[in-house]
Design a protein around this nucleic acid. Structure first.
Lengths: 255, 255
DNA sequence: CGATGGCGTGAACAGCGTTCACTGTCAATT
DNA sequence: AATTGACAGTGAACGCTGTTCACGCCATCG
């Protein structure tokens, strides 16, 4: 957006490449004249939202845009860069505004839940986020939003950094295992597979796995929201106590 | 191991496929007659340890075993199954013995650190672990080892399950972002890139990212061990307080 | 009106996971 | 002891992936 904008023929190249233009999912009312980096990223986002991250292929993305695969490389240097742009586009959906009058624990909790909800809506993107150094503008905005309450709460730089990473590590790491979409294998966690899972736990040798056998079916349920809430609450509670009580934490590195 | 064991020719098929057998990395002193599922998985593990997870390719794995790619499919149904076996092979290295006389917080802390150390030694495997339902024998052993102290400490089933997943979510999620090995791009976090990162933070607009500008360089350092220790301590501390104080945790699901 | 530069095309390349007919060799059977 | 059958590994192929590049087309600028 902002660069000099080419002209507007009725439909660019409609005579030459007739069929692709009409087979493509051009359901929008607006005429889509030419490709843009923003349009590429936007289509990648809806593709991921619909079919998951492993469906994001240069070829299928190009097909959805009514374009030959190589054309994408005019707007994106590589698939890796496209993924970086996708990550930043997803993080743009996180609302970074929090009431700074609230205690920092509340602010961080709200931000973490917002981040989780956004990542949950784009399955697989968290996996990209953890493999990259996220330095896009919206990634930075999220970082700033999380770091600011910690700083204002009086955390010294080092401890603020630790708390910051601990919170992001947990939130992103939690979302890396998003609910599987792949329907080809029965990976979807429906009632049937849950029953088979419970049978599996009952069938385990009780001498080797006593706790798993007795607790298994009470534990392996898909209560992702509850799990995240419990985790983030424990985490922030622990951070708060570490702030007040023992700023130098003991080290358990060996063993 | 256990099935009827074929014969032992001096070198199986050495006349037909002469060169491959000698070009293969047969540095071991033992004669390697034929393929085994265990040998395939073992070679995959050393390949991952040496070159990272993205170097694990059916073709290169076959080449290292002195074998044509299709031959692997006699011992492994698919690459996905191979990855599952790799995950379980890695988790076999986790020592699951803990002194059950210690407080549960100590036991869990030790286990979490051991798990982290093992995963750190096999970069990329944590990423597989979070995308699978780990039901191999060694995965189950780790689960049992973590769950048992919680159970013995009096956690009711539901709360034990929550604590269990919270600890594993954090530990595995933390390890998903292992230090990059890929040297082709300058992803390795050396001193030079750290300096460039600090310059980057100083160059940010201070009106948009005030906290990042002031705290940036004190925060983005590669203190992974310290970060993990701080996180797991805060987490377990928070879980301990939740156990004693408010067993019913408030819910922050909306917003 | 002609030159220019950017964008999409079409085709190709290397590499990936996976399949399959075939072959050689061992182990058990007759 | 000779025959049979099972099976591991071969070689080649299929369809897919990301990526590159010479080639035209077209809008714009001079």
């Amino acid at each position: 957006m902002g660069q000099p904008q080419r002209g507007t023929p009725a439909r660019r190249g409609a005579a030459a490449t007739h069929s692709l233009w009409f087979n493509a999912p051009e359901t929008d009312e607006q005429i889509r004249r030419t490709l843009t980096r923003d349009r590429v990223v936007a289509e990648a986002l809806t593709l991921i939202a619909q079919q998951g991250i492993e469906a994001l292929t240069m070829r299928t993305l190009a097909a959805r845009l009514g374009v030959v695969p190589g054309a994408l490389y005019r707007h994106v240097r590589s698939k890796e860069q496209l993924q970086d742009l996708v990550v930043d586009g997803v993080l743009a959906e996180v609302d970074c505004n929090v009431n700074s009058a609230l205690p920092w624990t509340e602010q961080i909790t709200v931000l973490a839940h917002r981040l989780r909800n956004v990542l949950e809506a784009h399955p697989g993107v968290a996996g990209l986020l953890k493999t990259r150094d996220p330095l896009g503008p919206h990634s930075l905005a999220v970082a700033e939003a999380v770091l600011r309450p910690l700083h204002n709460a009086g955390f010294p730089p080092h401890e603020a950094g630790l708390a910051f990473f601990v919170i992001l590590d947990y939130t992103l790491g939690f979302e890396v295992s998003s609910p599987r979409i792949s329907v080809n294998e029965q990976r979807v966690q429906d009632a049937a597979t849950r029953t088979r899972l419970h049978e599996f736990f009952r069938s385990l040798p009780p001498d080797l796995f006593p706790t798993l056998v007795t607790l298994g079916e009470h534990i392996w349920l898909d209560n992702r929201a509850q799990r995240f809430t419990a985790g983030i609450n424990a985490l922030i509670d622990g951070l708060q106590r570490a702030q007040h009580h023992h700023p130098a934490d003991q080290c358990h590195d060996q063993l």
